[in-house]
């Protein structure tokens, strides 16, 4: 059992942040790694990348958007409640290296995943420019965190309600045009965003890392649910990833595989909402 010690809702209560007691995982976790959790006995196992790691305090942070039954169920958990099962730290950590100028691009709850990587890149001496975006101002998360973890921070919203009007890729393109010394782009967010970040960087030949959130079951390399095609070869997101060279990733296949259970997910979510009397 893993106790929730802090709970915070943000982005108009569509996104939830838990600080969870998990001392052994916190002691080992590195930026870029994820955990798999199962909320209760009838629950499913879902992967969530850690947004924060506190080895001294023995806690990890997860930030998730309510998109279906499992995340809606999790949101009903309060401080003092416990998550039944958590395993981790899983996946390969981000390879943090001093390169020079790097750009970190985050969208939606991907910003939560991006944050520890951004901080890690800055801590070892890179010049970090971050671009974070959301559909609208109210949905933007972790602005302060990202500001502290970056040398420069740019904000975009699709509707222009905050920061620059447009997509993160618009800001990214302008930056790449203006700066010739960008060594690395890290893009984390919804699959379409990551796909377009990669499309944007490709003509510039800048190495681009993405963090994929494929569907997983055991998440220890045992089942292959999370297979993704990278550079024409099948990789397991759980053990070979979650980060890959974005220019090699088959995003169209990933999009289709992500949608494999949409019908069941909807049914499950509807049933849950009915049970909750919503």
């Amino acid at each position: 059992m893993f106790k929730i010690v802090e709970k915070r809702e943000m982005a108009g209560n569509t996104v939830c942040h838990f600080k969870i007691e998990a001392p052994l995982i916190a002691a080992k976790a590195q930026p870029g790694q994820f955990v798999v959790l199962r909320p209760n006995e009838t629950g499913e196992r879902i992967p969530l990348t850690m947004a924060g790691i506190d080895p001294e305090g023995g806690t990890i942070d997860i930030i998730f958007q309510v998109v279906g039954k499992t995340t809606a169920l999790l949101r009903t958990f309060q401080v003092g409640d416990a998550i039944l099962d958590i395993i981790g730290p899983l996946g390969r950590p981000t390879h943090l290296e001093k390169l020079g100028t790097v750009i970190c691009v985050g969208g939606g709850t991907g910003i939560a995943v991006l944050y520890p990587i951004t901080k890690g890149l800055k801590d070892i001496g890179n010049h970090v420019i971050s671009i974070i975006g959301a559909r609208t101002k109210d949905l933007l998360i972790m602005e302060d965190y990202m500001k502290n973890a970056s040398d420069e921070l740019l904000i975009t919203t699709d509707d222009g309600s905050y920061g620059r009007h447009g997509f993160v890729t618009d800001a990214l393109k302008d930056l790449l045009d203006a700066k010739k010394d960008v060594k690395l782009v890290v893009g984390i967010g919804p699959v379409p965003m990551m796909k377009f970040v990669c499309k944007t960087t490709q003509p510039y030949g800048v190495k681009t890392l993405v963090s994929l959130n494929a569907i997983m079951v055991d998440a220890t390399g045992m089942c292959g649910a999370c297979r993704v095609t990278v550079g024409g070869k099948t990789q397991f997101c759980c053990v070979d990833g979650p980060e890959f060279d974005g220019h090699q990733v088959d995003f169209d296949e990933l999009t289709k595989r992500q949608a494999a259970y949409l019908k069941e997910e909807r049914r499950s979510y509807d049933l849950f909402q009915k049970e909750q009397g919503q």
Partner: peptide, 30 residues
Amino acid sequence: ENLCGIYSANEYLTRSNLMKAYLFPQYDTP
């Protein structure tokens, strides 16, 4: 081989046996 609807036996059986997907939606795993 990576089309949807193609499982390894490990995944298919783990979903059904360990996660009790045969009892979906009583259990959440599809």
